[in-house]
Write a protein that binds this DNA or RNA. Structure first.
Lengths: 127, 127
DNA sequence: TGTTGACCTTACCCAAGGGGTAAGGTCTAT
DNA sequence: ATAGACCTTACCCCTTGGGTAAGGTCAACA
């Protein structure tokens, strides 16, 4: 099938598919006219990558996951550890954002929010 | 003072200072030999930007905040609203990450984590 | 037969926020 | 005089595609 149909079935955009190809994550054959041609198995890989991306895995991490997926000699412990490392990463991102959030909320709560220029948010950033 | 001293006092890197200058956020005069020369007031602006960046404001948002800071006719309500919009943005990012986290934790909890290839994480991504 | 529209192709510019490095100018101290 | 520490501009790199341009291909319809 051609790229737009592949995009529809995998949930990726045409652009993303071409990009993943350029990154070496996805392959395809070509028709006589040069158009990309995808098999059902190619779609499976694209769906796999799509889901992994939705869970926040980077392109490089997706590359490794596809590798694990296709390796029938893998140990599930390897996959589990990889996922745990990623989970820790996500957790740290959340913590960092929550720190920002707490500070912002504090600043906002002290700002009068009226027509006067005096503003504790600006004051605090100036310190 | 020259750029390295300005970096030390503001907490920014030399590179970041030059970058912010190219973005029009920071200005400076030049010495006879072409070296950048910063005043205490310039440092204040840099510190202001540094703090705003730490709270997750983008370069463009920092530009606006600097603008508000320097506008003595501002209404604190304007600043407050701007901060609240940013807060909402942060909140959404946190929610998105927490969704990812929940799914990941679920996948991880169902993975045996042994020497066998069977892995519910891979299985789930393949669906 | 011609043309219109929907596909497809490659290729380039853009985003944020700098890091790294090169090639070279300047200043100070020894 | 020269070494070392500073400064300058300028270029390429990262990530993950989005947007758009210029052009090739194909099927349908008049």
């Amino acid at each position: 099938m051609k790229i737009s149909e592949a995009a529809k079935q995998s949930g990726l955009t045409n652009k993303a598919i071409r990009f993943y190809e350029s990154m070496g994550l996805v392959e395809c054959t070509r028709l006589a006219n040069g158009y990309r041609d995808y098999s059902d198995s190619d779609i499976q890989t694209m769906r796999f990558i799509h889901r992994a991306r939705d869970l926040g895995f980077s392109i490089e991490e997706c590359r490794y996951l596809v590798c694990l997926q296709q390796n029938s000699n893998r140990a599930s412990a390897t996959v589990k550890q990889f996922a745990q490392d990623h989970l820790q990463d996500i957790t740290q991102q959340i913590e960092k954002l929550q720190e920002m959030k707490a500070i912002l909320e504090n600043l906002i709560s002290h700002c009068p929010g009226d027509d006067n220029p005096q503003c504790s948010i600006i004051d605090e950033l100036e310190k």
